[in-house]
Design a protein around this nucleic acid. Structure first.
Lengths: 357, 357
DNA sequence: CTGAAAGCGCTTACAG
DNA sequence: CTGAAAGCGCTTACAG
């Protein structure tokens, strides 16, 4: 341990001394507060630049008794899918780290199958006047309305999981779905014989929401891979609108009756576990199965060999990084990447023990 | 923004008041400094526990003018391989974040092919009496000697990239090599016909160092996968001791003369680029090529299709996390995981654009 | 429009 | 062995 004395970075005191003002005035200039004559403001700003003043964040947060409020709006964790546990975990991790910096996180949850619940929670957040918002924009119109309100109130917001590109969001943190599907295409083509038949499965209740669009985007990418590479594999597709296990099995059963020569299945979301379960029950081996998300159900089928590949986009990190982006912007006043695509991770039986979601 | 008034966490003042002592004495107890009677120490400790006192890290670092010195000892970046750029990048990223908390990082580099350079740099570090050390233990004996010295001087140290298990390190951050090779095995077997011939390539100058052991460990894992899954693919192996491009090509040429039926190549380190270059020059298509590390040379062959899979272990994060572990231990006094295995990431042409090294 | 003082929660000498 | 005071680099009222 050492004590540094030389070359200390400049502080408000140094600026005040050089500008012949009090540190209070320097503080006003630093924070663009009113009540300073243009002349002195200019003089002080010049000195700040000359000295390349870097505020001491520690001191700043210690002295300011202010608490920042970040509010999150994501789907609640349902039995149907425990995917959203992961982003929440990342958010909680960020919360723990930022607590000592005076940041609180308000958690609001909505029902994936209920637009009204989204709207209601969004209103609650607006009433509280959060300093920053993180949301998963599930319902296109409702989300847009909400973020417009945020913009009006000057509340910065970040999207995770899915993006609404033409919004003035602070940033988007999540997958590039098209390329994610594209990578799924490559994995599939590597592992199955040429020209063998492929089944694409979309499982989603509503057909007219962001969630369903997400699935289609992956499917596009998946198909594009084969097209771009001149592969002529026939592709069968099924849309399953009833998402309970029984309906899925029924649907799969029908499909396989019509197409007994299917060699590979690509499920565009985390419901791949239900498909795997069907295969297990009917002892249908020798199919290459690819799907999404590192959740318990899927992992167990991966280990048992009924799923070959899981594609993942680090949902825990999405939550963590989303909160940290607000922190970077609001506290550190640092630049934030407008679009942060998560990696397209490939998990298989043999590396799943080491996967960090 | 809000001001929290109620339920403020307890501070040294509260403790002092309750214990009927000055805050100076509380501070002494908090830091286990001498000069406090056993009676008062016990009394204060009891109150600290009762109040579940959590120190304010901000205030602590602001008040204490101490600077912590972390020193790193890793290979310098050579033309031969730019792998080590990545960990250094992570270290520099951590440095930027921790600067405002009064942490400095001293950077020491050694030559991978020169034990003496390692020893020399290690001695420099010991003389400076760092508060914490991060090292890549390339040379087994020399590293052990160095870490023994650290232990004696009570300097915590962390390993990255490769581990020396029986050392009192703060932690190891890096791959589980055996399982990394194992995953390589699964990828290979998925993508090639049964019973087709496989070539394993180890490229390393010295045969008796940590670095070479690393390669063998991956090879073990790779072979174990086939054994565990009762695959009878014949495996040919070659050890290349001269690591220049020409020698590698010569060696490969010989191997393929003997074994023209090789269907797949597994290169146990980042030199897979050199192998790919050989294949490209000789226009040898239809081979499945798997290797290690997300470095420029390899990425370009991946994109061109001469490499199919790159296995990676997030070297940037290894560096970042290594420094952060020292910070967690020394500043935050938090627990640190003794072994942090990095994920076994699989990069292919179609997801490489999104990979975060 | 500006300044002087108090305070954030700690640590660090110094005095006794 | 213990206490009182000063100070870390800022922000926040308050006074003029």
């Amino acid at each position: 341990m050492k004590k540094s004395k030389q070359n200390e970075p400049a502080g408000v005191k140094d600026i005040a001394r050089r500008a012949n003002v009090s540190i209070g005035t320097v503080d006003r200039v630093l924070h663009n507060r009113e009540g300073v004559s243009e002349k002195t403001r200019a003089r002080i700003n010049k000195i700040i630049r000359e000295l390349n003043y870097q505020p001491n964040i520690l001191a700043r947060r210690l002295a300011s008794r202010k608490t920042l409020q970040f509010d999150i709006l994501i789907p609640h964790i349902s039995n149907e899918s425990d995917y959203w546990q992961a982003p929440l975990l990342g958010i909680i991790r960020a919360e723990a780290e930022l607590k000592q910096f005076g940041i609180n996180i308000g958690k609001f949850f909505f029902d994936q199958n209920d637009k009204d619940s989204f709207v209601k929670q969004a209103e609650l957040i607006l009433k509280r006047k959060a300093d920053g918002v993180l949301l998963a924009p599930f319902f296109l119109d409702e989300s847009t309305q909400f973020t417009h309100a945020c913009s009006r109130m000057q509340i910065p917001f970040v999207f995770i999981n899915s993006d609404i590109p033409d919004q003035p969001s602070l940033c988007y943190i999540g997958p590039d779905l098209f390329h994610s599907g594209y990578a799924g295409g490559q994995l599939t083509r590597y592992c199955i014989p040429e020209k063998s038949k492929i089944l694409v499965v979309n499982v989603s209740k509503e057909i007219k929401n962001q969630q369903h669009n997400r699935l289609l985007r992956k499917e596009e990418g998946f198909r594009a891979y084969f097209k771009d590479n001149n592969r002529k594999n026939p592709v069968v597709k099924t849309d399953i609108r009833k998402t309970d296990q029984l309906s899925i099995e029924k649907n799969m059963s029908d499909i396989f009756q019509q197409h007994p020569d299917i060699r590979s299945i690509f499920v565009t979301n985390s419901r791949v576990g239900s498909v795997a379960s069907f295969l297990e029950k009917n002892n249908m081996k020798n199919l290459l199965v690819t799907g999404y998300d590192f959740i318990e159900d899927n992992i167990s089928f991966l280990k048992k060999g009924w799923i070959d590949f899981l594609i993942c986009h680090k949902p825990v990190e999405q939550g963590y990084r989303g909160i940290m982006s607000l922190y970077q912007h609001l506290v550190l006043k640092a630049e934030v990447e407008k679009t942060y695509f998560m990696p397209v991770d490939i998990v298989l039986k043999e590396n799943c023990a080491f996967y960090r979601n």
